[in-house]
Amino acid sequence: MQQANKPKTRRKYDADFKNEVVKMLGSGQTAAYISKALGISENLIYRWKNQNQGVKKASGEQNELALENQQLKDRVRQLETEREILKKARRAAPLSIFSRQT
């Protein structure tokens, strides 16, 4: 008798396992060796590696954007302070160097 064809269930791996596999790959072990040792496909290993690199790249870009954002906020604060100083100076000496006589 033939057994009913059951659909294959996908195995799920947690983030720690995936990170360890990527570390193994980064330490010089080949994907073929890792796949045989752990019983997973080489394609899966390479997919995890690419995902891991994408996460690192995205976090690096976020750090750069956060730094640039902070620098821009500091510059805006500096310009606002300079503007306030100029406003006060203009009010204190209305006919001084800030106004033209034509």
Score class of each variant (00 low, 15 high):
20 E>L: 14
96 S>Q: 06
79 L>P: 03
87 K>H: 14
93 A>P: 02
68 E>G: 00
27 S>G: 07
16 D>L: 10
47 R>D: 08
14 D>I: 07
60 G>A: 00
79 L>E: 11
83 R>P: 01
18 K>R: 13
52 N>D: 10
67 L>D: 03
29 Q>Y: 10
5 N>P: 07
83 R>I: 05
65 L>A: 04
60 G>K: 00
21 V>K: 03
30 T>W: 05
93 A>H: 13
26 G>Y: 03
39 G>W: 02
86 L>P: 03
78 Q>A: 13
52 N>K: 04
100 R>N: 13
93 A>W: 09
53 Q>W: 02
95 L>G: 06
3 Q>M: 08
26 G>C: 09
77 R>V: 06
10 R>E: 09
28 G>N: 10
43 N>C: 11
7 P>R: 15
7 P>A: 15
41 S>P: 00
78 Q>P: 01
12 K>W: 07
54 G>L: 01
17 F>A: 09
41 S>Y: 02
88 K>G: 05
15 A>E: 15
82 E>I: 04
9 T>F: 07
10 R>Q: 13
24 M>E: 09
93 A>D: 15
89 A>S: 12
101 Q>R: 10
82 E>F: 11
19 N>L: 15
60 G>W: 00
68 E>R: 06
95 L>K: 13
97 I>T: 12
102 T>P: 12
7 P>D: 12
83 R>V: 05
39 G>D: 01
81 T>Y: 15
69 N>V: 01
79 L>H: 06
83 R>K: 12
98 F>L: 14
55 V>R: 04
91 R>P: 05
31 A>K: 11
43 N>R: 12
1 M>G: 15
94 P>A: 06
24 M>G: 11
56 K>F: 00
1 M>S: 14
51 Q>V: 01
5 N>A: 14
43 N>Q: 10
46 Y>M: 07
52 N>C: 06
11 R>D: 08
4 A>E: 10
86 L>M: 13
69 N>E: 08
15 A>S: 12
55 V>Y: 02
48 W>Q: 00
40 I>E: 02
78 Q>T: 06
87 K>D: 15
43 N>E: 10
32 A>V: 11
28 G>Q: 08
9 T>P: 03
15 A>F: 09
51 Q>H: 03
84 E>G: 08
85 I>K: 13
79 L>Q: 12
55 V>C: 02
95 L>C: 08
30 T>A: 08
3 Q>L: 13
43 N>H: 06
88 K>W: 05
